[in-house]
């Protein structure tokens, strides 16, 4: 399998002078295409910072970050936005759907920024919603959907552009166990059937167990990196 992303000696410092805080202290990480990686670690371990850098929302203070051999740390704000637009999908703990907007419109949003025509948008959004099992709910607004359904809409929004990498930041954090398992099953199937590489941050061991590989962050460093052979 080819390498999708590679972090080399990534550090990230917040603030300046004596008030500065070292969030990442030299992280090396390689993720192959088609992998499903769970990132774990206590609060303040740097896992969110690493996620933001991999998600091209933030830039490292030093080190190299390659996305398909492109040096992301050298790109400007606009170029990183275009990278997100064409290769990345985001799923957040708080769902982050637009208020007073239907499921359909939420899912169409990334396509709108890509400049897809209306007919194509509608078709692709319907397909994505079908994939997350929400056919028939297209015209419900966020407020009319349950938490699990909202997260499904969010996932549909993330995959509607056929992203190379799906970044999920505690996708089950706001859901009960039953819904969480359904969401995880959905992510696993997306990984296996569509070959989408998934990077997921989670606190829960049970959810991390769905992934192929678990990376532990402690104090701004990768402490352990375990591939789970037993999970098929």
């Amino acid at each position: 399998m080819s390498t999708l992303i590679e972090l080399k000696g990534i550090t990230k410092t917040y603030g300046q002078g004596t008030a500065s805080f070292l969030a990442l202290r030299g992280v090396d990480l390689r993720i192959d295409e088609g992998d499903f990686v769970a990132v774990m670690g206590p609060s303040g371990s740097g896992k969110s910072t690493a996620m933001n850098i991999i998600g091209c929302l933030d830039v490292p203070s030093s080190g190299e970050f390659l996305f398909r051999n492109v040096h992301v740390e050298q790109l400007d704000r606009t170029e990183r936005a275009l990278l997100r637009r064409h290769f990345l999908g985001f799923v957040f703990q708080g769902f982050n759907l637009l208020a007073r907007t239907t499921a359909q419109e939420n899912v169409e949003l990334p396509l709108l920024y890509r400049g897809e025509p209306a007919a194509v948008r509608r078709e692709m959004a319907a397909a994505a919603l079908a994939q997350v099992g929400l056919t028939g709910w297209e015209h419900h607004t966020s407020a009319e959907l349950s938490g699990g359904q909202q997260q499904r809409v969010a996932i549909a929004r993330a995959i509607v552009t056929n992203p190379t990498l799906l970044l999920a930041d505690e996708p089950t954090g706001n859901l009960d166990t039953q819904r969480s398992r359904e969401i995880m099953d959905l992510l696993v199937s997306l990984n296996e059937q569509k070959g989408i590489t998934i990077l997921m941050v989670t606190h829960e061991q049970e959810m991390a167990a769905y992934a192929k590989r678990i990376v532990h962050f402690v104090d701004g460093r990768v402490e352990s990196d375990v591939r789970q052979q037993e999970i098929a």
Binding site: L57, A81, L109
Partner: peptide
């Protein structure tokens, strides 16, 4: 924030 995350440009 959501718009920027899913790839909206500044302009």
């Amino acid at each position: 924030g959501i718009r920027l995350a899913i790839g909206a440009l500044e302009r």
